[in-house]
Design a protein around this nucleic acid. Structure first.
Lengths: 338, 338
DNA sequence: AGAATCTGTGAAAACGCTTGCATAATCTAT
DNA sequence: ATAGATTATGCAAGCGTTTTCACAGATTCT
């Protein structure tokens, strides 16, 4: 069997209480004893059993991750894996493990959350979501279970969350385009149920109107999904309604690199090339065309990192820790691949 | 506090042993008692504490995932997240949790493995690797700790692993190109330290020679990395050495979609368009150009699924379970995006 | 010198569960 | 009717820690 605290105690000629205290560097133990015990620990290659610790401490030192996303999105958008690395990093630095469960739909999702909680397997949960009226949030709140959310939820009251300033992001990218001389800028949005979609649209609107232009509904596409297909369709509609020439936008602000990809694809097919396109997520795809391309990097790794920080600070009972973080976005101008 | 087995026992008027036995549906308990206990369980909303269970059972019902990969690769290649979903799925179906730790380098990686094991936090480990002489494998083997590997390791003896038949994959794709009439086919390989690179090259070689052609070193690029840059460079070298015309290959077999992307990019820049390019991983990027493009789908989700199966079957002490799985690959011909 | 305080350590309970063994009650076979 | 087997349940030890409380011995104070 594995060496336990008992073996160490015996080897060092002390009681297990003393060993336990040496482990936590309790000041009540004399330096002499500490040395002796530590020597025994080393010689026996003793490592405390995490499970037994958890039981005694009523804390698992583990957090759970809940990914409620369609496989497609997960695969096409590096956002998730990036955020996960950020979470893992902060967790490791603070001696926490992270459990992860992938689910196809919201109901299963909730089940996982319930299982995590009721079986007391985790001390807290990080939720990937920006869905309106998320069931998990509701449940977790009701159960008074600690969690943090990546993506600003509907009701922020009493919940820990981290997000970009999506308003600011599209404002900035639109403003950037205007500063480059663009006067007619189209917008392609995401699913209307997500806060992120609304915010991005609002940011675009503001930038447009601040500069004295008006929103043209013919070149504004709302409530799509973050897909290539949608981007492609939008450009086709644009071609239909605007014909070419004056009415055609000189730039397009999209809400996702995949949408942008669809737009670029459609452009290439229609043999249009002088339209600036922007996206979100700074996906590798961005460099795929030979066009200049601007993408908003949402710093997913940081989003994850701070989501973990929010949660762990709360778990550790930190007083007056912040309740949310806004992670700045970066405009990344990818040159055509050299 | 939370309701424990004691509360249930009291409510049902039985001992905790009985409750425990009802939980595991022990046949020695009478149906009558079972009903009574189950009623109490429901009423009290009792859920067994996973930690306490683990301690008593000396099993955590948790497996650990170790990702030793550069962030870049992780982000650009959906392979990992796909495999992870497969793992999560099989684990969930069998009542296991999965822990995940992301690391930048091999040493930290080993540390995580050591921590997982020495603290007894997991029952087994899944390793993502195809690195020659992996330190983790060595360590895990030495410690007699259960693990499975995604990617065929150097020494397969006594280790559980799952992989594609990479030889077969490039053989197939090369053969496919030849059947389409291509006679001069270039090859772009991956890092020579990985088995996967060697296998893919061998498959290509075999297909070429089986059809009576010979390998031309001038159009064969080995020991690169799985990157866009490398693909780009290769095509440039091709242009330099082959000039255009007869000596130029009519098709290029690459070892990764990213390499293929680089090739396509360079082609576009040099205004070449009639060269068939193939890749690996069936990345969304594949559809990025408007060219026809063939990618080998490695079925990453299945790789993960079976890696989990191998491990869990072993953990559960399944007799004569297989020691490895070969997951078939699929040739995916992506039409130019409509 | 005796009381009060401080230091360093150990005994034992607690965390919430599983399981081997014991036992009481019922049933079967003689 | 009685020994033996069977069925249904409980007792208590054990899993490997942490932590409260107690206490012995050393130190300080009056």
């Amino acid at each position: 069997m594995n060496t336990t605290i008992n073996d160490v105690a015996k080897a060092a000629g002390v009681s297990i209480s003393t060993v336990s205290r040496v482990l936590s560097d309790n000041p009540r133990i004399s330096e002499d004893t500490k040395k002796r015990v530590r020597k025994a620990i080393k010689e026996l290659k003793y490592h405390p059993n995490a499970i037994a610790r958890s039981l005694a401490n009523k804390a698992t030192k583990t957090i759970g991750l809940i990914l409620n996303t369609e496989a497609q999105t997960l695969i096409r958008n590096p956002f998730f894996i990036q955020a996960m690395t950020g979470i893992s990093q902060y967790a490791q630095e603070n001696g926490y493990n992270v459990m992860f469960a992938y689910n196809k739909n919201e109901d299963e999702d909730l089940n996982i959350a319930i299982r995590y909680i009721t079986s007391r397997s985790v001390d807290g949960i990080i939720l990937f979501t920006s869905r309106a009226n998320d069931k998990c949030i509701e449940y977790l709140t009701k159960e008074h279970f600690l969690f943090s959310v990546i993506g600003r939820p509907d009701k922020t009251e009493g919940v820990l969350w981290v997000d970009n300033d999506n308003f600011q992001a599209t404002y900035q990218v639109t403003d950037f385009l205007i500063s480059k001389g663009h006067k007619k800028i189209s917008f392609i949005g995401g699913p209307i149920g997500h806060n992120v979609s609304r915010d991005r649209f609002e940011g675009y609107k503001r930038a447009i109107s601040v500069h004295g232009y008006t929103i043209d509904e013919n070149i504004t596409f709302l409530n799509g999904d973050f897909s290539e297909e949608f981007g492609y369709e939008c450009l086709q509609k644009l071609i239909e309604t605007c014909e070419f020439g004056e009415k055609f936008p000189t730039a397009i602000v999209t809400s996702d690199d995949m949408q942008a990809l669809g737009v670029l694809s459609a452009m290439r097919k229609a043999n249009i090339s002088n339209i600036a396109v922007t996206g979100f997520n700074n996906t590798p795809v961005a460099t795929c065309g030979n066009e200049v391309f601007v993408s908003v990097d949402v710093n997913a790794e940081k989003l994850g990192f701070y989501a973990a920080k929010l949660l762990l600070d709360k778990i550790e009972g930190e007083e007056d820790a912040p309740t949310h973080y806004i992670i700045p976005t970066d405009l990344v101008e990818s040159k055509p691949f050299i």
